[in-house]
């Protein structure tokens, strides 16, 4: 039993154990990142504040932002048409969302007869500048290889069963375009304001592996 200078012992396990004071050793990649970032700052290529600004930007891009875009498209047909025609310009001009210069963004619309689902068979291309980082399964070899070959079985595993008269369009993001799926607006949501509709739009529904949520569930 260990006694310390404040009158009680510390050998009882605590219910809410704090994270260990000694972090695990840094990986080779962490050293590389640290070395590179310090070098860029030292040589004046970037400032430390730039790194923080970039991290804040990355975190500001997430499925909630995509859900705002979808809900607006559901409630404003003019916006929807402009979004489908030129997503970059429409998001910049009407929602002040800059999708960056790395890739083009294209919005596609799911309907009663057509269902889009997005995959990147070659790596993990994803509309990060709108939806943030992709889910782990999106990058998995299994999803990437199977989504193009047996999309209906894959969708079923996500709990999404489509009638056979709904055609599936699998979009393989092989090059310079990233795809945003506008899921079909669920029935029973007539008259709902955009902010209420946003709650029905999941990340997966904007990839196409899910439908927008049933309004009864919200």
């Amino acid at each position: 039993m260990q006694n310390n200078d404040h009158g009680h012992t510390h050998d009882e396990p605590e219910v809410h154990a704090p994270s260990p004071d000694e972090p695990p050793p840094a990986s080779e990649w962490e050293f590389l990142e640290k070395a590179l970032s310090e070098l860029l700052v030292e040589t004046g290529v970037i400032e430390e504040a730039d790194v923080q600004r970039m991290m804040n930007f990355t975190e500001s891009r997430n499925p909630a932002l995509g859900a705002k875009v979808v809900a607006r498209a559901w409630t404003d047909s003019g916006f929807r048409d402009r979004l489908l025609c030129d997503a970059r310009k429409t998001l910049r001009e009407e929602m002040e969302i800059d999708v960056g210069t790395i890739a083009e963004l294209e919005a596609v619309e799911n309907t009663d007869k057509l269902h889009h689902v997005v995959v990147c068979t070659l790596c993990s291309c994803y509309p990060r500048n709108l939806l943030g980082t992709p889910p782990a399964w999106y990058k998995s070899r299994e999803y990437r290889s199977r989504a193009v070959r047996e999309p209906r079985i894959v969708l079923k595993e996500f709990g999404t069963v489509l009638p056979s008269d709904v055609s599936i369009r699998v979009l393989d993001s092989t090059a310079d375009l990233r795809y945003l799926v506008i899921p079909k607006r669920p029935g029973g949501t007539e008259g709902w304001p955009a902010d209420r509709l946003e709650a029905l739009v999941s990340r997966d529904s904007m990839i196409g592996t899910a439908l927008a949520s049933d309004p009864d569930s919200k």
Partner: peptide, 8 residues
């Protein structure tokens, strides 16, 4: 009726 689309 299903299709796969790629940018080539």
């Amino acid at each position: 009726a299903d299709v796969v689309v790629a940018d080539l």
